[in-house]
Write a protein that binds this DNA or RNA. Structure first.
Lengths: 130, 130
DNA sequence: TGAACCCCTGACCTAGCGGTTATGAGCCGC
DNA sequence: GCGGCTCATAACCGCTAGGTCAGGGGTTCA
């Protein structure tokens, strides 16, 4: 335990006494959400790039083809295609082939659910958000 | 404009007709949030790592010193220190030196505000979240 | 039927990320 | 004053990410 001049400043909760094997985090397992923290990894990874956030913002207005999405950026078509792939992997967008075009639309449900699930662990934040 | 067998399947909104210089995204500027999309970059980058999400979950319970946080993971102290630095950069945690110890606590306000701000652009998601 | 279009993926490049060990600055107790 | 503790950072390593060009599969249309 920590010994300090003013130990009352610290929490009463100490660290785990004994380290065991994996995983890295020793706390309670992640709350249920599509079965794993892997989904949250994909979700936040998808949103960690500004281009992908902007693609989502664009798709909030309407569904678009790849070419139309490309037309809103100064990036090459393969670049946008890559970003769409990451968003698809995170289930934030849904694609639908129409002839030689592929139309993408936002998956509002997943977007909302992912954030909602993440905040289940943050009671105080939920209160602030209300 | 796209010519297809069933063009009514696509949105009426076409891409920007003329590309100009930077930035990559040609749409409306990001909504106000601490002045820039740079903050959202830091925010989502911070959350894109599972260890950092778990640190935040831990801090939801109580404030902790670096050593106490380390005690809850199978990672080295410098690794945790790095993660805390990323979280601090995103203003998701606040640190306070107490002697040789540094105590970290969650910044619920920033956590809630960042997400709230991001969802300003997603009307449908806000409705789902309610 | 073949040329053009749309879009995805491989390969490559550069930069960044997440882990480690080593180390040093600052604090604390004796 | 010194040894030990706490914690941040440098350096290194392996891997991932985001951009490009090149190319190919599938679709469309004259």
């Amino acid at each position: 335990m920590i010994r300090m001049k003013h130990p009352e400043h610290l929490s009463a909760v100490g660290p785990h006494p004994v380290r065991s094997t994996r995983p890295e985090f020793l706390g309670a397992p992640a709350p249920r959400f599509n079965g794993s923290s892997r989904e949250l990894n994909k979700f936040f990874k998808a949103l960690s790039d500004e281009t992908r956030r902007n693609i989502l913002r664009l798709l909030e207005q309407s569904e678009f083809t790849v070419g139309e999405i490309v037309g809103n950026f100064h990036l090459s078509q393969p670049t946008i295609s890559r970003h769409l792939s990451v968003l698809k992997e995170a289930r934030l967008v849904v694609d639908q082939r129409q002839g030689q075009h592929v139309v993408y639309r936002l998956s509002n449900d997943t977007l909302a659910r992912s954030v909602s699930q993440f905040f289940r662990d943050f009671e105080q934040c939920q209160q602030i958000l209300r």
